[in-house]
Amino acid sequence: MTRTDTWRPRAWQTQSLLLAYPDETFRRHLPLARRAAAGLPDRAAAPLRTFIEHTEGRPAEDTAADYVATFDHRKRCCPFLTYYAHGDTRRRGIALLRLKRTYAAAGWCLTDEELPDHLAVVLEFAAVVGAHDGGRLLRDHRAGIELLRLALREARSPWSHVLDSVSATLPPLSGDERTAVARLAAEGPPEEQVGLAPFAPPEFMPAPTGGPR
């Protein structure tokens, strides 16, 4: 990715909007997302158009119910990226704090309702800081993104199309990344060692996503 690569931040911002909880604001963003997708390369735009067309044709309450059933009730479809590498362990707490510091260093502050590792939040930040730094942050979580994409595809979730678009903005998986994805798929996220209390404060632990992120 080069510093003049401008379409990727536009794609990440659009993907972030489409991964938000589907409330009234989400519905108003769909026409904006459609216009934004029109200016993207087809490999990133086509999956977004598929998702938008599917969503526009369904009642809002059905989309909201599907979102909760997918992201709240399926651990394999967890939208919190540090969970894939660290589970709910002390190391995840450290990873979350690092993310918050990365955001703060760029002058970007989260609201109390937003967790720093939610994919929609990471994508929005990547869009703000640009293709070079944003791409690097997303590549840091490449294995988790790919595992989420595969889980959504297996569940036949319409949000799998949004993850297909995210994947299209990133380089192909390397050998090490393929190994990490295979390991996570086989073993699942790590578990905390016996006798250790969770490190992460309550505001950093996964919470139901059926509302503002």
Rank of each mutant, 00 (worst) to 15 (best):
L99M: 09
E187R: 11
D133N: 12
R101Y: 05
S160C: 05
L150V: 09
R101I: 04
T25W: 11
L30M: 12
S174F: 12
P202C: 15
T179N: 13
V181A: 08
A104G: 07
H132Q: 08
A120F: 00
P59Y: 05
P59L: 04
W108H: 10
T169Y: 04
T102M: 13
L147I: 12
Q193C: 05
I145M: 14
F204R: 01
I52Y: 12
P201K: 15
C78W: 00
L18D: 01
T4M: 10
T179M: 15
V166W: 01
A95T: 02
R3C: 08
R58S: 11
A127L: 06
Y103F: 15
E24P: 03
A20V: 04
T25G: 14
L163F: 08
F199T: 02
L96K: 08
A11C: 06
E24K: 09
T63W: 13
V121F: 08
R98K: 14
Q13F: 10
T63E: 15
K100C: 10
A127K: 04
W108F: 15
D72C: 10
D117V: 03
F199R: 06
T4G: 08
L110G: 10
A168S: 12
G87P: 01
T70K: 07
T89E: 13
A64R: 15
G107K: 06
S157T: 01
I94N: 02
E24A: 14
A155V: 06
A64P: 04
A106N: 02
E191H: 13
Q193T: 05
P59Q: 05
C77N: 00
A69N: 07
L184W: 11
T50D: 09
L147M: 14
G144L: 10
T50V: 08
H132A: 13
L150A: 14
P201W: 12
M1Y: 00
L32C: 07
E53A: 14
R153H: 11
D66K: 14
H86M: 02
W12A: 00
C78E: 03
A168K: 03
D133M: 13
D42W: 11
P22Y: 02
L170H: 03
A155I: 09
E154M: 08
F204D: 06
P31V: 06
L152K: 03
H29Q: 12
G188W: 04
H132S: 09
P116V: 14
R139L: 09
V181H: 06
L163H: 02
F204W: 08
